[in-house]
Design a protein around this nucleic acid. Structure first.
Lengths: 129, 129
DNA sequence: AAAATAATGATAATTATTATTGTTTTTAAT
DNA sequence: ATTAAAAACAATAATAATTATCATTATTTT
């Protein structure tokens, strides 16, 4: 199945790349709808999934939150705020991490590190946003 | 809401504790059904959720796999095999990990580390199990 | 420009999980 | 031991997130 260009996919990718928020499929959907009012939610899911398969973007599965998407493909960690449900990037030295774990039961293709907590904005003012 | 004893919950806990496989709700359901043939799947979910809220067990959210549950509550990491979908424990020195990341955007309550890959059993024989 | 094929939009279906409701167990109090 | 109150149950409906289907449209190839 040879890949073809599509304006919708381009719009999705453009939106992701333009913001360093880490939106969910729903957020992408509502944003891209400004430009393509009758884009389908399925198209958003289809393209996000496809692009993450192709390594063009990254899918962040964090706990019970719906998946978030990240245009940064280099290895790094994340922080999910349990109040505002925003995801933040966390810089991580994976060489050091590799030195801090015991033997693995196989070969790992990737290592996801996610911190769960409350971001300082939410901690600061009780519960805004 | 004062917690009361229930045989079903005990059976669920007993099954979890007895095996160091990290079953999903479904697996727990089918096992506990041997003992309580008309236990409801909702009961399994309800109790797994409740126990993990209470810190009695841990819920492991791993990618697109359904949640797995772990009776070991001490901090440790996991490895998900993409072929057999089993979850393995990984020992991790969290002090070292703490020293290998950049600043966090808030206060973290927990840090989940998950490796995704292929376990040696599955790598060994092509695709058994 | 026509034919071939992949992507879309609309929507149905699926999967995992949570909520609801009426009934049964368990605990605590008589 | 009875009984009343609260929590847990089984069954099932409901929800949320995601994926599949399929007829139509857009992109690419010839």
């Amino acid at each position: 199945m040879q890949k073809k260009y599509s304006r919708q996919r381009e719009a999705i990718k453009r939106y992701l790349t333009g913001n360093d928020t880490h939106p969910t499929a729903d957020e992408v959907y509502y944003q891209v709808r400004q430009e393509y009012p009758n884009i389908s939610l399925a198209t958003v899911y289809r393209n996000l999934h496809q692009m993450s398969e192709d390594g063009e973007i990254r899918r962040i599965c964090c706990g019970s939150d719906p998946d978030h998407y990240d245009f940064r493909t280099e290895e790094h960690g994340h922080f999910l705020c349990g109040k505002c449900h925003r995801v933040f990037d966390v810089m991580i030295d994976y060489e050091k991490v590799a030195a801090s774990h015991g033997p693995l039961p196989g070969t790992a293709g990737s290592c996801e590190i996610i911190y769960y907590g409350t971001c300082s904005a939410c901690a600061g003012d009780g519960n805004r946003l």
